[in-house]
């Protein structure tokens, strides 16, 4: 078997006394879509931030394509160049146009000439139906459009791995669909994705593998039909029951 794109080993993260991640092991293989589920505070977002090295680990490793990128001697920027992350709150740069947001990393980090970077960005935008908004500032766009721009920004330098942190949680219900459709399309094209979500129906359709996080531990993982259909762990059953009662499945 080939080396996984991402391999998380024994990951521990604490904030002061609180242990947010308590020894997480997780592999993501090429072209695989792995979905993290679990209640708020279970550590999904922290896991994604740790993988992107935005947080300092308290123990364990993050291994990207066989290299330990969490080693303090390794250059975190070099690792981040191979990953894209999309945040719940979009975090677009408000002082830049949509086009500049997307071309920033290619131009400033990857040394792509502006013309080539803009060509790629425009292609991405037209694929997302946002070609008309290239020159707009982010605050002129709807939440769904902003989130799609954020996804384009993360894709602009063709990352090996795309991290999606509850990308639809800050959106109005009628805007969720357009973002999920885009993620579905990316998954179909073979993008390697690790995502946290509360959209269980979507997770069930798109995931190759579902991981249930509870109290900072990965307590159950498997194909979506198994995790959603015949969960083995009591905590998973409880969680799914609560979700079903809330009408989200």
């Amino acid at each position: 078997m080939t080396t996984p794109v991402l391999s998380v080993r024994g990951l521990v993260k604490r904030y002061q006394q609180r242990t947010v991640l308590d020894g997480v092991d997780l592999d993501v293989r090429e072209h695989e879509v792995v979905v993290l589920i679990g209640s708020s505070g279970s550590g999904k977002s922290t896991l994604l931030r740790c993988v992107n090295l935005l947080e300092e680990l308290d123990d364990g490793q993050v291994v990207l394509d066989g290299t330990d990128v969490s080693d303090p001697r390794a250059d975190p920027d070099a690792a981040r160049r191979r990953m894209g992350i999309v945040f719940q709150a979009f975090n677009l740069f408000p002082h830049m146009t949509v086009l500049d947001n997307i071309t920033l990393a290619p131009r400033e980090v990857h040394g792509t000439p502006r013309a080539a970077a803009e060509r790629t960005a425009r292609e991405l935008l037209s694929r997302m139906g946002l070609a008309a908004h290239a020159a707009d500032y982010p605050d002129r766009l709807s939440g769904g459009q902003q989130q799609r721009v954020a996804i384009a920004r993360a894709l602009a330098y063709s990352p090996r791995l795309l991290l999606l942190d509850e990308v639809t949680s800050a959106l109005d219900p009628e805007l969720v669909g357009e973002v999920l459709a885009l993620v579905r399309e990316l998954a179909a094209q073979g993008m390697t994705i690790l995502m946290a979500t509360h959209e269980m129906g979507f997770a069930r359709q798109v995931a190759d593998r579902v991981c249930f996080l509870d109290g900072g531990r990965l307590i159950e993982e498997g194909p979506p039909d198994q995790v959603f259909g015949t969960p083995r762990h009591e905590r998973t059953r409880q969680f799914l029951r609560r979700i079903t009662e809330a009408g989200r499945l």
């Binding site: 920027d77 070099a78 990953m83 945040f87 740069f93 920033l104 920004r153 993360a154």
Partner: peptide, 16 residues
């Protein structure tokens, strides 16, 4: 801080 996180996640160093 989320603006800094977004910039760093794209691979930009502290100065950029």
């Amino acid at each position: 801080p989320s603006q800094v996180a977004a910039a760093r996640s794209l691979g930009l160093g502290h100065r950029k």
